[in-house]
Amino acid sequence: METHTHVYILVAFLLGTKGLLLNLNQTQGPSMFERLNALEKQLADEKRQRYLLQVEYSEEKERIAELRHLQDTMNETNQKLLQDYNSDPKRFQDISTQIRGALLSIYNLDSKHNLDIQKVLDALRDVQTSLTDITSNQSDIFQLQRHFREKQNVLSNMLDAVKRNQTTNKEKIKSLRASLVSLANSQKNLQSTVNSTSNKQTSLNTQFNKIQRSNVAFVAELSHDVVNPQDRYHIIFDNVKLNIGENYSANNGVFTAPYPGIYHFALELTSPPQSSDHTLHVQIIKNSVSVAVTFLDSNTQQYLRRTGSIILELDTSDLVWCQTDHPFDSNTLTSGNTYSMFSGFIIHPL
């Protein structure tokens, strides 16, 4: 706006001096008036060129605004990419590097456009400064005309350079937009990969937990004979041979279920020959309730070996142990050499 005002003042000044120049024409000839008319026409052409340049400059500013909006959109996209960075650091670092390169290219193009426009505006200011120095001296007018022609040539060359740069920049921006679309597609593919990897990780964790819960087993035997036990005597198999998961206690002979599941328990008992008839029952107890029983009765001639087993569904912290039931007369449970053993393991966690 300030540039237009200066031009209007200059044109008014020239029109005001037109009468003075007409007087000069009476002594210097009609060629002076024709030159002044030519100069006025040239100034009008210059004004029109400046107007066209301003229009082109406004269009360029709109393009730059679009580029800046695109840059903001890219910044938002870059923030989303950074949120998923930990999922695949190296791949996201490569994408971030490409995006920063694209943003830097756009910024450089923006700076170059601004520099070209600034050069044109500087040239226009030089023209305005030159116009203010116009006097009625004919030699000054001729010099000004030459100066105008030189400036016109400079401005024409600069405008041609700006147009060439605009064409090149449009192609670069088109290429950058295509690259950004490709990067966005790559981001979607990476997100799909991350989601798939996360699902696989969840599945693996579930399988690992099931495998981990399957690692429960124990085997224990008597380290010393149990002689003439009383009724409801709690048998402690204190010599532990296997205790995966550490869920069987050699101190009290109790197995504690670590997880809900289906468990198998087995009891192997050996009794030496006795001098008279006898009775001995050994129960497997679940939470104080008998769930299985093994009989060692009436053995007077040889060693007696009995086995018993059961499959139980247990909840977490359920207890399983062995105890005697209704012993009669003399009874002995033989220890050592796997004669009397208590064992168990998990079949399937629930």
Rank of each mutant, 00 (worst) to 15 (best):
H6L: 15
H6R: 15
I9K: 13
L10E: 12
F13Y: 12
G16S: 14
T17D: 09
T17G: 09
L24S: 05
L24P: 00
L24R: 02
Q28A: 13
P30Y: 01
M32D: 09
E34Y: 01
A44N: 12
R48V: 05
L52G: 14
L53S: 11
E56A: 05
E60W: 01
E60N: 07
E60R: 07
A65E: 06
L67E: 09
H69Y: 08
L70S: 06
Q71E: 13
M74D: 07
E76G: 10
Q79C: 13
L81T: 00
L81W: 00
Y85D: 15
P89G: 14
R91I: 13
D94N: 12
Q98E: 12
R100A: 12
R100K: 12
Y107H: 08
N108F: 12
L115E: 14
K119W: 09
K119P: 07
V120Q: 11
V120R: 08
R125G: 05
Q128A: 14
S130R: 07
S130K: 05
T132M: 11
D133M: 06
S136A: 07
N137M: 03
F142I: 10
Q145F: 01
R146G: 05
H147Q: 06
F148A: 01
R149E: 10
E150T: 04
N153P: 00
S156D: 08
K163G: 10
T167F: 07
I173L: 15
S179P: 01
S182A: 15
L190T: 01
L190H: 02
S198C: 11
K200L: 15
Q201I: 15
Q201P: 05
T202P: 01
T202A: 15
Q207V: 12
F208L: 14
I211K: 05
R213T: 05
S223L: 10
H224W: 01
H224D: 13
V227S: 02
V240L: 03
V240C: 09
N243G: 09
N243S: 08
I244L: 14
N247F: 07
S249F: 01
A250F: 08
A250W: 06
N252G: 03
N252V: 04
G253R: 11
F265I: 05
A266W: 08
L269C: 12
T270L: 03
S275R: 11
T279W: 02
L280K: 00
H281A: 12
I285E: 04
I285H: 06
S290L: 02
S290G: 04
S290Q: 08
L296I: 06
D297A: 01
S298K: 04
S298I: 01
L304S: 03
E313V: 12
E313N: 15
T316L: 14
D318A: 13
L319Y: 04
W321V: 04
S330W: 04
S330V: 11
N331H: 02
N331S: 02
T332C: 08
G336L: 04
M341E: 10
F342P: 04
G344V: 01
P349M: 03
